[in-house]
Computed example of a mutant assay.
Amino acid sequence: MSVQDDLTTVQRCLDDLARSVGRLEQQLGSGGLEMRRVRTDATHLRESVALLREAAATSASPKRPELVTIPDTPYDDSLWIDTDDEGLGARDRRAP
């Protein structure tokens, strides 16, 4: 199964849970602490799955880095006038 299929299955289960909680509220009343906790927990689960669905949607389409074209033409030598030849050795000698 794909992630989207699993999320859809979880969403269906949460819909069934919400219907069941609604029926329990009708039978037991909605004023008790236990019933409020169950309703709140079911709501938090729905919100968490919605956040997970958004996160899965953004990670499913990975962003490709922008390509940078490097020209084949040589660089302008005036860019390197004020630089030192540090690390290249002396101009009149060969490297070891």
Rank of each mutant, 00 (worst) to 15 (best):
Q4L: 10
D5A: 12
D5L: 03
D5F: 07
D6Y: 11
L7V: 11
L7G: 01
L7P: 00
L7I: 12
T8S: 03
T9Y: 07
T9C: 13
V10M: 08
V10G: 00
Q11Y: 11
Q11V: 11
Q11W: 11
R12A: 15
R12S: 14
C13H: 14
C13V: 05
C13R: 06
C13G: 14
L14S: 08
L14F: 10
L14Y: 02
D15H: 11
D16V: 15
D16E: 15
L17W: 02
L17M: 13
A18K: 06
A18W: 01
R19D: 15
R19Q: 13
R19E: 15
S20K: 14
S20H: 08
S20M: 12
S20G: 14
G22W: 02
G22T: 09
G22L: 10
R23G: 03
R23F: 11
R23T: 07
R23Q: 12
L24A: 14
L24C: 13
L24W: 05
Q26M: 05
Q26N: 07
Q27E: 12
L28A: 09
L28W: 06
G29S: 06
G29N: 11
G29I: 03
G29P: 14
G29R: 11
S30F: 01
S30R: 14
S30M: 04
S30A: 13
S30E: 07
G31W: 04
G31F: 00
G32Q: 09
L33Y: 07
E34Y: 07
M35N: 05
M35W: 02
M35V: 08
R37H: 13
R37A: 15
V38A: 14
V38R: 00
V38N: 01
R39D: 02
R39N: 13
T40G: 12
T40V: 10
T40N: 10
T40A: 15
D41T: 09
D41R: 05
D41S: 15
D41C: 15
A42Y: 04
A42S: 13
A42P: 02
H44V: 06
L45D: 06
L45P: 00
L45F: 14
R46T: 04
R46D: 03
R46I: 03
R46L: 14
R46W: 08
E47Q: 15
S48V: 02
S48W: 13
V49N: 01
A50D: 08
A50Y: 12
A50N: 11
L51H: 06
L51I: 10
L51P: 00
L52R: 02
L52G: 11
L52W: 02
R53A: 00
R53M: 02
R53F: 03
E54N: 11
E54A: 10
E54K: 13
A55P: 01
A55Q: 08
A56V: 05
A56C: 06
A56F: 00
A57C: 01
A57Y: 03
A57L: 08
A57K: 09
T58F: 07
T58R: 10
S59A: 06
A60P: 00
A60C: 01
S61I: 04
S61C: 03
S61D: 06
P62V: 05
P62R: 01
P62A: 09
K63H: 02
K63N: 05
R64H: 09
R64V: 07
R64P: 02
P65R: 14
P65I: 06
E66C: 02
E66V: 09
E66M: 02
L67F: 09
L67E: 06
